[in-house]
């Protein structure tokens, strides 16, 4: 029990530069750019994954659910099964279950879907944990109130920024973590575990910085689409494709 399956990057030509750069201890921006070149087709396929789409589409629906008279009931209408007004932990769990059920019903999910599912919970948790009051304990009403605030242009822009930063970071490290650890140790490109961690932190920062590009328009897109009642899964898929194209270019541009 407790088996873990680890893979390596293929020794195919398109991955050679990533392997070389990691072996040379190159910076995270250069590695990100090379990884995006090698995995470009993979990233382009993301909007077609039903779990990627459903994960982000649910994020677009949560703020209005929180603004309705009955938050829990509105969540259940979205397939997010909660008993009452949820805490952050309960909302995260229900969101995960909803995306799992959707993928199961579609009989279709890729690793990208799992990454997006995780990024959705991560981005929402990240924003909420920094905003809900903790001094006297968080009440479900605090959570509802903070989720409702995400309906503004600015706040949704922040949520989208976090989602695409987290998703991009997961996407890049999905590949680099197949190679990076084998370059850790004495006489290797990353002579210490802290150098390995520093590389990953720099990659994370790189993704966070790149995701600012999404923040600038995601809020406007959300706000306009919400007003025009065009926040459909189809329109959302187009937006995801556009946002990922912007992320890819920004990440390749370096810092």
């Amino acid at each position: 029990m407790g088996h873990i399956r680890l893979g390596k990057l293929p020794r195919a030509k398109r991955w050679a530069e990533v392997v070389d750069l990691l072996g040379l201890g190159a910076g995270s921006a250069a590695v990100a750019a090379a990884t995006l070149d090698a995995a470009e087709a993979d990233l382009r396929s993301a909007p077609q994954d039903p779990a990627v789409l459903h994960a982000f589409w649910l994020l677009t629906q949560l703020p209005d659910a929180a603004r309705s008279d009955d938050f829990a009931s509105a969540l259940r209408d979205l397939g997010v099964q909660v008993e009452g007004a949820p805490s952050v932990a309960e909302l995260g769990a229900a969101l995960t279950q909803a995306i799992d059920r959707h993928a199961l019903a579609q009989r279709n999910k890729s690793d990208l879907g799992e990454m997006a599912q995780l990024a959705a919970v991560q981005s929402l948790t990240g924003l909420l944990q920094s905003r809900v009051p903790t001094l006297f304990g968080t009440t479900p009403d605090d959570v509802r109130s903070e989720v409702a605030k995400l309906a503004t242009e600015k706040q949704f822009g922040s949520l989208a920024k976090e989602f695409f930063a987290d998703f991009s970071q997961r996407f890049l490290t999905y590949y680099t973590s197949r190679e990076l650890p084998s370059h850790v140790g004495r006489d290797r490109a990353f002579p210490e575990l802290t150098a390995h961690d520093a590389f990953n932190q720099a990659l994370d920062v790189h993704c966070q910085q790149a995701s600012r590009i999404v923040e600038t328009f995601a809020g406007t897109w959300y706000s306009k689409s919400r007003f025009e009642k065009t926040l459909t899964p189809e329109r959302t898929a187009g937006f995801i494709g556009y946002a990922l194209t912007k992320m890819r270019r920004e990440l390749k541009r370096g810092d």
């Binding site: 029990m1 680890l6 973590s177």
Partner: peptide, 13 residues
């Protein structure tokens, strides 16, 4: 343990 370990690459026995 690593980001490459997606889904049941880590067992859920």
């Amino acid at each position: 343990v690593l980001p490459q370990v997606i889904g049941t690459r880590a067992t859920r026995t």
